[in-house]
Design a protein around this nucleic acid. Structure first.
Lengths: 197, 197
DNA sequence: CACACTCCTAACCGATCGGTAGATTTTTCG
DNA sequence: CGAAAAATCTACCGATCGGTTAGGAGTGTG
């Protein structure tokens, strides 16, 4: 059956932990380098220096490996952004969101490609609101804190800004010299102008 | 050899033209429905009602079919946007670009997914500047026409707005009821504010 | 020593991939 | 009508896909 035993994650062997971590890392690398299609079971195994069967000893299916890799990259991003946002005053949180998002993705380009690939290829149910929802809430709260009264739609603003973040990050993927920090400030300016009305 | 004869496109048989058109259409549909990975030669052939060999009689490789489908979708988009842009006064062209882009993609959702898939999966050389370059030029020209003097970076503005367009269109793909026209106006507002400084 | 458990390899499985070869049907045209 | 050309089908190819099976090396542990 080649089954993994059940039980808490903390009960995993040292080797088990190390392998899982390694497999997640090489999968992220592979997806970043050659896209989803290039991340075959054989390719993952080869880059990890083991056989396909060994990979499937630590994960039930290939999909589980990719899912774990995606969740790993996403969790790091969310943790980073959440920390930055919570450290800021409500009125400044949308800006903090943009800056930390761009910053994190700049520092982790591989994670970035992994996340992008997963977003495009999420054949299956995945709530798109999960992407812009949090930002929309931050915008709402910031407008409340500032007493802004214009009739903007937080959802649309969040969608647009989210797209802008993606585009800035994608540009840096093609041109490593692109100044994403300045671009982020540019985007923050546009956002601030919009939500302060 | 199963080779196609050389010669101008206009010298193609009626059947040849019809098949090529049909194959391009079903490929766009297939990519839109099931992504790049789902657009296999067998799937394309089946949906067209012929065999794999027949598909490869009209196109040299599967990659050529996909490429043709992509170029078809892209050409329609470019033609549409170019017409709308040229019909506007220089000062209004960035706004015309945004509106026509969102409008075209709303009216051709299948083309949209085809183009998005191709962008993400363009394993190979593809100049990213081709995407935001034209908009950056329109922004530059509009600022000149208006006598704006702020120190904005047209490239970054174009990248951000381009990302916003993508995000609006992507949102509509998930939620067909999303009001992209209003969202486009929202984006136009942000853009106008930025470039008028 | 013997048994159990963890971790792994070699070999194989059926399915599907893109593509090819050759026979065969359909269309075109003198 | 009859032959050439165009269009298509059947059948196959090697490669690769994700996944399975059986077994064995290494490490304790009774």
């Amino acid at each position: 059956m080649t089954r993994r035993r059940e039980g808490a994650t903390s009960e995993l062997t040292l080797i088990e932990r190390a392998r899982r971590t390694q497999l997640i890392e090489v999968t992220i690398e592979l997806v970043a380098d050659r896209g989803y299609a290039g991340a075959s079971l054989a390719a993952i195994a080869e880059r990890a220096g083991i056989t396909k069967a060994a990979v499937l000893y630590h994960f039930p299916t290939k999909a589980a490996v990719v899912r774990a890799a995606h969740e790993h990259a996403l969790a790091a991003l969310v943790a980073d952004v959440a920390a930055a946002v919570e450290a800021a005053a409500p009125a400044n949180r949308p800006a903090a969101y943009v800056r930390s998002m761009v910053g994190h993705l700049r520092e982790h380009p591989r994670h970035t490609r992994m996340i992008i690939e997963a977003m495009v290829h999420d054949d299956g149910e995945h709530d798109p609101a999960a992407r812009w929802g949090p930002l929309a809430q931050l915008i709402d709260a910031a407008r409340l804190a500032r007493g802004a009264s214009g009739d903007i739609d937080p959802r649309t603003t969040a969608i647009i800004v989210g797209g802008g973040i993606d585009a800035i990050v994608a540009e840096q993927l093609h041109d490593p010299d692109y100044d994403t920090a300045t671009a982020a400030e540019h985007l923050v300016d546009m956002l601030e102008t919009t939500i302060s009305r």
